[in-house]
Design a protein around this nucleic acid. Structure first.
Length: 617
RNA sequence: GGUCCCGUAGCUCAACGGAUAGAGCAACUGCCUUCUAAGCAGUAGGUUACAGGUUCGAGCCCUGUCGGGAUCACCA
């Protein structure tokens, strides 16, 4: 059935044309939910037509209202307040709507549109385990994928694994030097953490070496000759660290040597690299599993980091790029408000963006998508502006379909997470903690009858993860978010478990319906729809539109807030009205059907966010 | 300095350019003999950073100012 909103928009447009002789675009007609304090279900904003009508707002509203009442069967009545045209929709429409939702398990989803979109997210480095920042990235990528799927796209979920470079070499070298035969197996440490620990040790050893070096005559001489005026020793050496690591450090030299050996495909280095990355993937796999996410296609930086050289040639021949005297290749984006950007070094080697250009082209050849979404933190906004602009100028066919889903940093109440200060929140620790807290709080509430320990554990896992995921995904991506660990595991108020609880209530009802074989066929004969019922119907009615908007804006928080709002309305409904013990069989059937539809939409909506519903809690 | 993002209740967040800016947390008050109280209802809390402008109407759009962040490498 087609939405009443469209009917109203079309009819208002026709009314305006007929009454005032000017054509209006139906999609421009604003139809809003009527605020609670007024009578009506939907309100038409008539101000835009006042000029055309050459009449006062109220008079215009009345005229349009009368036209609607006469021409739209579903419009039961209307009233006009301060130029707002409030419409009451007939119960028959809502009845029919409810039946259609109850009969459609895919309500809110669009049919396949035959189009394909790639979503890239997570994209970790392989030298350390995943942390809270990755979790936001992963949840955004995952829910965006689900939402795009829901509006009809075929979605290819990918990640590019940054499996090469200095960082992983540090872990490799560290384990090689000091590992003494230790493995994840014989230490019992989760393999990605195991590798990360060696990285940390390497950084510690480097720091020690640096501090020792600072006492040497050479260091003192460098300080005296290179320091800025009034610069203290401490400050100077802080700034000098990178330079020192490249020019003086023995550990630095060893890492560079290892990187060179890797690039030369030295067999022992490659074997070590594969072994350690293998451990990391094993660990990641478990974390992804815990988060309930998966990928369709993996890319490895070790395969892609040399790509993009041919695109430089192409850009030069197309005149998009130009060569400087020293042989370096650039693109001039000053007319687009950006700077000149290097795309190939003077020694002919590529830079970061070269690789991304090549990867974009390669992936398009492989996947042939219409759109490509990159989920990457907002510190790379400029990079993606430049990347997309270049691809556009190169005339890539998918250039218009590129999108950077940029998201803000996750901060703790105490400020930014700092590796050096050990304030980075580890993903696995966090997951374990939320599940532990769900268990703890459930124990305080006591046992639920008839639930096996295994079921109980699974339900509590869903509750804990629901709390964590909802807490993160309810915030608009662009905003940096403050992650308060204590609040993230709250199970009351505006939280995942609050929504899950409304689902569990419904689930309990449905089990009774099943057991008692309740006849729901009389639902349609229920005549007197209550406000608590109406607000649920109106909310359900909006669901498909919310999913659509979330997809258009790459914004899962819209779905999260919708689910919360729906759950809130359901709790109110539950509290105010008797469902199973309703006065009449019609009311009982109607309310149960309504409950079932709400449960179905809650499960669907939360599913788009990657949150699973417990059966009992 | 240039560019971009953010600024809403004490705190965390909402609000297709629409009516009296809403929730949750924290505080206080009620509601379990009835379908699960992880719930419901109430009290209190606001010059939407500031100043102009656009219009029937601005938290939202424009200009400027102030605060916070990011970014502007022959790093990734």
């Amino acid at each position: 059935m087609s939405s009443i909103i469209h009917t109203l928009q079309n009819t208002v447009a026709r009314a305006v044309e007929k009454l005032y002789g000017e054509a209006t675009e139906p999609s421009k007609v604003q139809v809003n939910n009527t605020p609670p304090d007024f009578t009506g279900d939907y309100s038409v904003v008539v101000f835009p037509f006042v000029k055309i009508a050459k009449k006062a707002p109220d008079a215009t509203a009345v005229e349009i209202g009368e036209y609607l009442k006469k021409n739209v069967a579903e419009v039961k009545s209307f009233n006009v307040v301060k130029g707002f045209l409030n419409l009451e929709i007939s119960d028959a429409y809502w009845q029919q709507f409810l039946q259609s939702v109850a009969a459609d398990s895919g309500f809110g989803r669009q049919p396949r549109n035959g189009r394909k979109v790639m979503v890239e997210f997570s994209s970790p480095n392989t030298n350390k385990p995943l942390h809270l920042g990755h979790i936001r990235n992963i949840l955004l990528g995952w829910s965006c994928s689900r939402i795009l799927e829901a509006i009809g796209y075929e979605v290819v979920k990918t990640q590019i694994i940054n499996d090469r470079g200095v960082a992983i070499c540090k872990s490799m070298l560290s384990w090689q030097k000091w590992g003494a035969g230790k493995t994840p197996e014989n230490t019992g440490i989760k393999p990605d953490h195991f590798v990360g620990d060696w990285y940390v040790l390497f950084e510690q050893k480097t720091k020690a070496e640096y501090e020792e070096w600072q006492q040497t005559e050479e260091a003192k001489r460098i300080f005296e000759t290179k320091k800025k005026p009034n610069q203290g020793e401490k400050e100077f050496f802080k700034e000098y660290k990178n330079k020192w690591f490249n020019d003086h450090s023995t550990l630095g030299a060893e890492v560079r040597e290892m990187l060179l050996k890797w690039e030369a495909h030295a067999p022992d280095t490659l074997a070590l690299w594969k072994k350690m990355n293998g451990w990391v993937y094993e660990g990641f796999e478990q974390t992804y599993n815990d988060l309930g996410v998966s990928f369709d296609k993996l890319y490895y930086e070790s395969d892609t980091y040399l790509l993009g050289k041919d695109i430089v040639e192409e850009g030069l021949s197309k005149g998009v790029f130009f060569k400087k005297d020293d042989g370096s290749v650039w693109v001039d984006l000053t007319d687009a408000g950006h700077d000149q950007k290097l795309v190939l070094r003077s020694d002919g080697t590529s830079v970061y963006i070269t690789q991304d250009l090549g990867t974009a082209q390669m992936r398009h050849r492989e996947l042939g998508c219409e759109r490509y979404v990159y989920v990457v933190a907002d510190e790379q906004n400029y990079h993606f502006q430049v990347l997309f602009e270049i691809l556009k100028r190169l005339g890539e066919p998918y250039a218009e379909g590129l999108h950077h889903l940029s998201y803000g940093l996750v901060e703790l109440p105490t400020g930014r997470m700092k590796t050096r200060e050990g304030t980075v929140v580890d993903a696995d620790d966090l997951i374990a903690e939320v599940i532990r807290l769900a268990n703890e709080q459930a124990s305080e509430r006591g046992e639920i009858e008839g639930v096996s320990p295994a079921e109980r554990q699974e339900n509590l896992r869903r509750v804990g993860m629901g709390a964590l995921k909802f807490f993160i995904v309810k915030v608009h991506p662009h905003k940096k978010m403050i992650f308060n660990p204590e609040e993230s595991v709250d199970l009351q108020g505006q939280t995942g478990p609050y929504i899950q609880y409304s689902y569990v209530r419904i689930n309990g009802l449905m089990q009774r319906v099943e057991k008692e074989k309740v006849d729901l066929s009389k639902a349609g004969a229920y005549g007197d729809i209550q406000p608590q019922e109406k607000e649920l119907l109106v909310a359900l009615h909006d669901y498909p539109n919310v999913v659509l908007k979330a997809a258009e804006g790459y914004d899962p928080s819209l779905v999260a807030n919708f689910c919360y709002d729906l759950a809130k309305k359901y709790h109110r409904f539950w509290h105010d009205l008797s469902i199973f013990n309703a006065d009449t069989v019609e009311a009982k059937a109607f309310r149960l059907t309504l409950s079932r539809s709400v449960g179905q939409v809650l499960k669907s909506g939360m599913g788009l966010l990657g949150v699973e519903m417990p059966e009992r809690m």
